[in-house]
Structures are given as C-alpha cells and as structure tokens.
Design a protein around this nucleic acid. Structure first.
Lengths: 199, 199
DNA sequence: GACGACCGTTCCGTTTACGGAACGTTCCGT
DNA sequence: ACGGAACGTTCCGTAAACGGAACGGTCGTC
C-alpha cells in the first residue's frame, strides 16, 4: 500500500476514535477541509507542518501518525466501540506479559494464512513463566539479543544464548525462563488464521 | 525551537553518524541536493515522501527523524560523547538496502560482546541481491513473515517459507532473493564488537 | 601550479500542497 | 414541507517544496 494511504487511514482512524468530524478537526487544527479530506483519502503528500498540526489537535505525538515501528496504539478507546475497523474476530494479540515476562507488541503482520505478532520481550532473571496453549498450529520463534533463555516445551526445553534462535510449537503449554539473568529477545508468534470449523 | 529546525538537525546528525556526505545521501535517496541542504538548515517544510526517502536511505524508520517520544536514538553513540562526528569508527548499521532489498532498522541492541541490528526488510519478488562480507563472526537470522526467501551462502542457499527461520554466517558474501514474489521478513545481524583489547 | 573530483549552497522553472470558497447531501428543529 | 446548520468533496489561485543546473570552495593528484 502507498505510504500516503497508510498515513491517511491512520489519521482517519485517530479522528474517528475521538468522534471528531472532518470539519471539526480541520477547524481545531487550523488546516483546510480540502487538505484534510484529500489527505485522509491518500491523495496528498502532507508536509511536516500539516502532520504536526493534525497530530497535535488529536492529542498524539507526531509519530502516532506513522505506521512504522513508532506507531503504537495511542488512545485506543474503550473496548466495545469498534467502528468501521471491523476488528479481527480473533481479538487482540495474545497476552504474553506475566510475572516473568514483559512483552511489547512491535508489529502485527497478517497474510492470507496466518497472523504473526512480533514482540520485544524481556524475561526476568531467575524467573519462570508457563504460558497456556495457543490455537492449534501456532508456532513461536525467539531470537535472543542478550542473556540465556530456556524456553519451549516444558518436557524438553531448549537453551538459547546470546544471538541464538529457538523455535517451538505453541499449541500446548510452553515456558519462558531465564536462569542466569535478564534476557532481552524478540519473540514471533505465528497463528493460523481462524479456520475454526471447516465443515 | 522551530519544528523544521529540529528535524533538520536530527537528519544531519543521522547522516553524519554514518559518515555520509550531503551529496551522497541525496544521490542515494533520490532527493535533490538543494532539498537536503535547505532541509537540514531548517529552511524547508518537508513532505512525507521526502522524509521517507531520506530515512529509508539512512536505514532508520520514519519516526527516527522526529524528535518527539517516538524519537528513539538509532545508532546514537554513547551519550555525552562530543558531537565530533568521529564517533564510532565502525559507523552506523550495515547497509542492507539495495536493488532487491529495502531494509529499515527497527532496533539496535548492544551488549558487552556484540551489537545486534534488527531490520524490517522487504525483498522484491524475482530479485536477487548479493551482500558483501561483514566482519568475521557476524551471524544473521531471518524470520519470514510472508513469501518465500532464498538466502545465505551463495554456494548452498537456504529456502525459508512463511513463518520459517533461516540462519547463516555472514562473514563471507551472502545473498538475499525472493524467487516467487515479494517477501516480508525480519532480519537480525549480529556482529562481534571489535575487541578493544582489555589487557 | 593547473587540473579534476567532490563538497555544500544558491538560483530557477515546474510541480503540487495549501486554505478559502464553492458545491451537493444529510439531518434536525420549527 | 421548509429552512438552517453541519457534513464531506471538489474547484481554484497562491505559496512553496521539489529536482536540475549553476556557483564558489577545498582537497588530492599529476
């Protein structure tokens, strides 16, 4: 998708989450309605000042308008208000964070067959966390940045040191642990798209 | 300070950290030298496309050009070190982007022994790119989000489909290719720190 | 010391992002 | 039914961001 379209959609999403009309946001931000209309449609290539005026009026940092790694969900409103977004039926990303693990979703990627959540995680030294089974077919990859992690099947866990990679099937219980000190890593959780019932 | 000046200084900083001349970055990113010169001086109000072209050529995500909360230090040398562009002689992250590959650095992680650059990359379908050797001991991991990539040692390349993982040693020439269509993936490049002789 | 290669800045014509003012539509209140 | 207000889109003149082509300055090389 074109970059301008991505940013346009993101801005429209932020605006609608706040229940603002296009005209109201244009008035409040000091930009023209024409600018905002065509920008949301992906038909303009906005300048930095325009983006700044809009994000400030929306109450989010500039980076919130972008879709790359800096684009974290700002002000995602109360659950229940799900406008056009037509959210994924599966709901949000799997909850990973727990006593031993802090996980931040950095990207969610979806293709025709599966959705892949990319997490930046930290496992606290000496801690162990067991995670419940995900849906059948779910695969996990871990790439360790620093420290030594012991992960995967509780019956046959795998040890991964700095720079190493581990892989396991997550449709059964699985664990994350860091016996020798904190671990920083990137975790990939790839789940097949719900074809829950193919009669 | 004016917003345009902030962004201009940030871009100049990123460029100088990488030891690139203004002309070289203009050439590489496809923008005019006039544009880049005045932009770094804070005398222009860049468009989104211009910012994207520049940050991509610098190997950082768009948000890296901004100075707000999203503005994480990419490749910033140790804090407190004087701005003397001298900085780390190793320079910035390895240049990955080329004819077939677009790479955006999403994180740079450094521990005592190695530095790991995490890239979000796209390999264009049908294209092949050969990359020069990195320093001895460099390891690369690829986790494929979608498509099928053929990567690694040119003499014995590895095929990785959606959700798969590939690993190779990058201290010799190595290739990235996508025979059957575009590939989206995450690439880890882990390079040993140049041993600074601690006697 | 003249030449060439590269640097960063300035000038200039073209393209286009901008805001204001129109437009047609929908939704209220009278 | 009618009027008014608000909505989002389209049209248009102006301002300015863009790339290409100049310019002067600095560094190596012959």
């Amino acid at each position: 998708m074109e970059l301008n379209e991505q940013v346009g959609l993101r801005l429209r999403q932020l605006r609608e989450e706040r229940g603002l009309s296009l005209s109201a946001l244009a008035r409040r931000s000091g930009t023209g309605k024409a600018t905002l209309s065509e920008l949301e449609a992906g038909r303009r290539n906005p300048t930095l000042e325009t983006l700044y005026a809009l994000t400030t009026a929306l109450g989010v940092p500039l980076s919130a308008a972008l879709t790359d790694s800096g684009g974290t969900p700002y002000g995602t409103p109360a659950p229940g208000t799900s406008p056009g977004a037509g959210g994924a039926p599966g709901g949000g990303p799997a909850g990973i964070s727990g006593q031993a693990v802090t996980a931040v979703l950095t990207e969610r990627f979806e293709d025709g067959a599966a959705v892949t959540d990319v997490f930046r995680i930290r496992i606290r030294g000496g801690a162990v966390q067991e995670s419940a089974a995900h849906i059948p077919g779910t695969q996990e990859h871990l790439v360790v940045l620093t420290g030594t992690a012991v992960v995967g099947d509780p019956a046959a866990p795998v040890t991964a040191g700095p720079g190493a990679h581990a892989h396991w099937t997550a449709d059964g219980p699985h664990l994350y642990s860091a016996p020798h000190g904190d671990v920083e890593a990137v975790l990939f959780v790839r789940s097949p798209l719900a074809a829950p019932r193919t009669p």
